[in-house]
Design a binder for these strands. Structure first.
Lengths: 368, 368
DNA sequence: TTGTAAGCGTTATCAC
DNA sequence: GTGATAACGCTTACAA
């Protein structure tokens, strides 16, 4: 009724109801004990004044905000938006709000976000760390006692729970499937940025373990594992890194197909890259899977609808978020057990984009 | 250094630095005037104690939180995740945090979210309203003086800024392109839920204006407009609403194609529905665009990579978010001009999925 | 430039 | 069950 700016406060309500502020507060906040009669009176007064609680004041004294901070690379990326969905569902189910920050893989932005969020006194933090190198801010958070869970990327130096996927095993399984079908010349589209790609540009991808925190690197390692298993040399021409966008994968694929002994199969390390590979094959007039088999990562919604339907490594994306949030809530509730590290399983979903290797001439096999 | 729980406060820092709390606060908060020397002293003391500001306390006294509340239907939906991206970029650029709530199109959840967010004293609210029917909570917000901007859906009863797309014109343009190419039997896959669909189940979609706030309804109206323009009767068999998921669109498409005079073109009202239509055509062995032309909404990343590349109505999705956020920031900065309603333009992107109507027998034309 | 002291709107601790 | 009153950590007149 009374539409004053700055709205009514508990003392206002108390005055109108003819009780003390303490009583009014108890009635409005549903704590302590209040008689039914006063509760009613206070409720009416509050309604009449259009009273709205002030969470800030409450948080100041209770020391809890019922808010979680979430720091991700890029919410526009379907992977992260599904992770966030998992987080959000669990959080809201438990009565927590979610404040979100995009880092765009910038470590500085991340550091700043973590600072701002702790200053806002979030009850806990979910972070998908941009860089495994600079982690002092995360260590600081963990050690300062703010509950923290690492999402999708684990960093050993940070003593916090984590939820990740076994990227290495996933890529290995996908590559194994291809070698089983006789493929020996298998292209890998990684999307790694220049710096990272250079680090791996050593023969046989041997630089890779150093950066296993990195999702892409883990997958690349799995690819190598599978090749080594069947005694195939890892050749650097077959590993291309042009960037993470679709157009980059188009270029990468064309580059692969223009090689002297072009690959008979391609593994694309995420769904956008797979999309680009698919587009490139179409543009080149190369038939999939007849001429080239294609395997992607992430079971995006289009993978089943395209022609041919794409064989993919599916990750439990939403569960990454929900599990992480669940762990965080346990910490917030007071759990003090040592850091937990959940590794979720992936699944190879076989659809139409993979076929046995064409023309498996013995000579070719040996030469690759 | 000193890792006490609950961390250091301004008085602690002040004591260590040998100054008053006011001075310390001024130094730490970068306001008022402090001599370089004291600033230095205070800074050192703060570092030594591991001081972190408490935004809650600051907000209590300043009355501003530098936080925006964002209420959307479903962050997992690529459309909303891109809207959010637009919001987030503008917000962070201006020093605001974003707290996000998913409503899943539930009006109750939305109402509750709005309450919680105002109690948290967000500086402004961006809402994509679930239901045009129950809007008292939004009116309340607007009238209580909390800046509010409606995103992607306008509600006339709520006196707030809004940013939307001209869905009707967009669908009309797409349909017009099809009629220009000689198509007369044009299927529409709307995805509307049962209740809504029923309301429109009157001949010629004449119930549609009543719910024009609804995105889907606006598009359906545009479809009708274009047909009416060329004197084609709107036939209800050609308008199917099986739901919003891909599988629903698959069913819907198969239903359309099994009609006596099956459509020669299909308009799918969002990107997931287009995906389903595409899948269904493949499963049916119907060639696109030779047998049936297909137009979708939203320029999703896969639309250019599939075979054939999909003709779509592109919306400036991210700009919906960024514009909305910009308007909100203006309000927060104190603008008191009357509500602004931005209507963003869409663009028909013609790719390979549309071709002239096959076998345009005069008889068929008239009969539809 | 610096210090004193009065709030901001709650909850929490006591008495009664 | 109810009422004073002291925090919570900060900003902000106002004075010095």
């Amino acid at each position: 009724m009374d539409e004053r700016r700055g709205s009514a406060t508990i003392p206002d309500v108390a005055r109108l109801a003819g009780v003390s502020t303490a009583t009014a507060a108890r009635a409005l906040g549903n704590y302590g004990s209040v008689s039914a009669a006063t509760r009613e009176k206070v409720g009416q007064a509050a309604a009449a004044l259009g009273y709205r609680a002030n969470s800030l004041a409450r948080s100041m004294v209770t020391g809890t905000t019922n808010t979680l901070g979430v720091v991700l690379s890029d919410i526009e990326n379907p992977f992260f938006s599904r992770v966030l969905r998992g987080i959000s569902d669990v959080a809201h189910g438990a009565g927590f709000e979610v404040v979100l920050v995009n880092t765009d893989e910038s470590s500085d932005t991340e550091r700043n976000a973590v600072r701002v969020l702790t200053e806002k006194r979030v009850d806990g933090l979910l972070v998908c760390p941009a860089d495994a190198g600079s982690t002092d801010h995360l260590r600081w958070v963990a050690e300062a006692g703010t509950p923290l869970v690492l999402v999708d990327r684990r960093i050993r130096q940070v003593p916090a729970d984590s939820v990740v996927v076994d990227n290495r095993a996933a890529a290995r399984a996908a590559t194994q499937r291809l070698t089983e079908l006789g493929h020996r010349r298998i292209g890998l589209i990684t999307g790694m940025d220049g710096e990272l790609a250079e680090r791996f540009a050593v023969p046989g991808l041997r630089g890779i373990e150093r950066a296993l925190i990195n999702t892409t690197a883990g997958r690349a390692a799995g690819y190598r594992d599978a090749l080594v298993e069947v005694g195939v040399e890892v050749r650097s021409e077959y590993v291309v890194s042009e960037g993470f966008r679709r157009e980059d994968a188009v270029r990468a694929t064309k580059q692969l197909m223009s090689l002297d002994g072009p690959p008979t199969a391609i593994l694309a390390l995420d769904s956008l890259l797979a999309l680009g590979a698919m587009q490139a094959l179409r543009e080149l007039g190369v038939r999939c899977p007849d001429d080239v088999s294609l395997v992607g990562f992430d079971d995006a919604d289009w993978t089943e609808a395209v022609t041919p339907p794409l064989t993919v490594v599916a990750q439990p994306v939403q569960r990454i978020g929900s599990e992480a949030c669940r762990l965080l809530l346990e910490r917030i509730a007071g759990s003090t057990r040592p850091p937990v590290h959940r590794v979720l399983r992936t699944e190879l979903i076989e659809r139409g984009s993979v076929a046995p290797a064409p023309r498996p001439h013995r000579a070719e096999r040996l030469s690759s």
